[in-house]
Amino acid sequence: MAAGGDHGSPDSYRSPLASRYASPEMCFVFSDRYKFRTWRQLWLWLAEAEQTLGLPITDEQIQEMKSNLENIDFKMAAEEEKRLRHDVMAHVHTFGHCCPKAAGIIHLGATSCYVGDNTDLIILRNALDLLLPKLARVISRLADFAKERASLPTLGFTHFQPAQLTTVGKRCCLWIQDLCMDLQNLKRVRDDLRFRGVKGTTGTQASFLQLFEGDDHKVEQLDKMVTEKAGFKRAFIITGQTYTRKVDIEVLSVLASLGASVHKICTDIRLLANLKEMEEPFEKQQIGSSAMPYKRNPMRSERCCSLARHLMTLVMDPLQTASVQWFERTLDDSANRRICLAEAFLTADTILNTLQNISEGLVVYPKVIERRIRQELPFMATENIIMAMVKAGGSRQDCHEKIRVLSQQAASVVKQEGGDNDLIERIQVDAYFSPIHSQLDHLLDPSSFTGRASQQVQRFLEEEVYPLLKPYESVMKVKAELCL
């Protein structure tokens, strides 16, 4: 049975990233139509530049190519590739079939990587351009969430054990800070992308030097003109047959890092959902379990974690691919890159769409948070109580021993009897502590235990987050809708 299948058929496997999760716009960027249309555009740009620099290419040939950029006979191309065992030459023939007058000058002087690699770089750039505003929107939604809850005390956790208090907004800023680093890295790697350009079979530009009869300047002009037509500021000066596969490492490393950030955020949300302090959106008709109707599973956060793990592992592909590119190139890269580049971007696209949807509907339960604080705060307040007693004339050592005994009794009630923490009640009825009984409410005010959390939130948002989001103001209103 021949390899390949009808990918629109229910009898043929289709990647869930495309069929179930990723956005239509990201799927289109990695589609065959987008790819092969870009090949034709690159052939047109090459012909236009070659004509401008004096090669015998007519206006009629150029116009014929322009008129057929979208006229792609995919069936013919597939048949040609089956016959020739070469995808680029299959599309040269297919393009030439609908451009008979231009057929002889299509791909003039070029090698397969002229269309293959340059198209990949265009796709990487455009895919990054799709991700950047999506990530900015996630940051914006979380920034709104953090600002609104900047002063809401909550129990902090280290080692997932109760620690000092923080605020809900401050905790959210930990998430935002990681995503801001990801946004900066995505922008950097996007701006650092260079075009492969017009380089020939081993990167020496020998074929173009021959076409222009040894004119170095025209060869350099050709490279520059096509690079500018493709919208790049610069091209690699040095290439082998391909652009260095280190570029793929750079791009997928940034995406993998984004995956790590999203995994951490969504894990926190899942843990908070278990504590009943916070939940992701839950639709009115949504079913959490087929057997347990009360369940409210954090399905979206779980999906993000599941896909983020996949995204983090994909960076190993370009690392290994770059390491086995012998001399000017081997074909070890080809099949692998067809999979890992598309999957990385479709996965990143999915987790950003999902995280935006989550961040637009996060639900906080202040009463649950308050109750958990009441359970733990008495123990945390013991040092403040000791200091207040010393100020009232008591002995630190005597007070410490009193607190120690009462704390152990209260802990026994919590752990052995399943009761509430009654340390404060014990202190309130103990005559030894009568000098500070009137101060206990103040000493137990949760806001006095959150330090500068709310001020940190305000400063972080104003100095770091809002300036970073400013270039994306025009796209901030787009909502994230999930079908599944």
Rank of each mutant, 00 (worst) to 15 (best):
M316L: 13
I351R: 01
E279M: 07
F449Q: 05
H217F: 12
A453M: 02
I249P: 03
N71F: 13
Q320K: 04
T111L: 00
C99Q: 03
V226L: 15
P446E: 05
V168S: 05
A230Q: 02
F212I: 07
I237D: 04
K264R: 14
S334K: 04
L255C: 14
R14V: 13
A110S: 10
S407C: 11
I237H: 10
I106R: 00
P435A: 10
N421Q: 06
L152I: 10
E60M: 12
L211D: 06
F232H: 02
S474A: 15
L258H: 13
F433Q: 03
P378T: 07
A206G: 15
T204I: 03
Q397T: 08
R141G: 15
D422C: 10
P467G: 09
R371T: 05
L352G: 06
D59Q: 10
E383T: 03
R296W: 07
R171N: 00
K276G: 09
G451R: 03
S290N: 01
M76F: 09
V315Y: 10
H442R: 11
P24E: 11
L319A: 01
R14K: 15
A102H: 01
T154E: 06
L193E: 06
F433S: 06
V315R: 05
G96V: 11
S23D: 15
A163W: 01
C399F: 05
K479Y: 11
R171F: 03
D445Y: 09
K264F: 04
I72A: 08
E280D: 08
L128A: 10
K246G: 03
G156L: 00
S359I: 09
P318M: 05
I139L: 14
A146Y: 00
K147I: 11
D178Y: 07
E80F: 07
Y472N: 13
G259D: 00
R190L: 11
Y114H: 03
M312S: 04
G169W: 03
E60L: 13
D317C: 09
Q286V: 01
A273R: 01
E80I: 15
H93S: 15
S31D: 10
D398R: 13
L193Q: 09
F327V: 12
C399N: 07
S257F: 07
F282H: 08
S474W: 15
T167W: 02
Q241E: 03
R245G: 01
E60H: 13
D398M: 14
F282R: 09
A235G: 13
V363T: 05
S407E: 03
C304S: 10
I122E: 00
V254K: 10
I122K: 02
E302Y: 01
R309T: 08
L211C: 11
L165R: 03
A291N: 04
D73W: 08
C98E: 12
F145Q: 07
G4F: 15
I72T: 08
C266Q: 11
G54F: 08
A47P: 04
V315W: 09
P293W: 02
P56A: 11
K470L: 13
E302V: 00
H400Y: 05
I249S: 07
S407T: 08
V168I: 08
A90Y: 05
I122Y: 13
K218A: 12
S112E: 00
F30K: 01
L352Q: 07
E463Y: 11
P298G: 03
A342G: 13
F145E: 11
I424W: 13
V115C: 09
F208E: 02
P471I: 15
T52L: 10
K199E: 00
K82E: 14
E81N: 00
Q458G: 13
W39P: 00
A344G: 15
A230T: 05
S290L: 02
F208R: 02
S290G: 03
G240P: 06
G156K: 00
M181H: 11
S261R: 02
L84E: 15
P133A: 14
L69A: 09
L362V: 09
K229N: 05
E473H: 13
S447W: 14
R188M: 07
N126R: 10
T330E: 00
A78C: 12
F157L: 08
G200Q: 05
S448K: 15
L406T: 08
F236I: 09
V254W: 07
S253E: 07
A150G: 12
A78Q: 13
R190G: 11
R338A: 02
Y432H: 11
C113D: 01
R303C: 05
H86M: 01
E464F: 06
V29I: 12
N336I: 14
G231Q: 10
V413H: 15
K147Q: 14
S412G: 12
L124E: 13
E213V: 12
R196E: 12
I269K: 00
T119W: 03
L469P: 02
L341A: 14
Q375V: 04
Q320T: 12
G197Y: 02
Y294C: 01
R300E: 05
Q456M: 09
A235Q: 14
T52Y: 12
D223S: 07
G200D: 00
K284H: 10
L352D: 04
R329F: 06
L355A: 09
F327E: 07
Q455K: 09
C27W: 10
K470T: 14
G214Q: 12
A206R: 02
A136K: 10
T58L: 13
D223Y: 00
L258T: 09
E463L: 12
L461R: 03
L69H: 09
A136R: 14
Q241I: 00
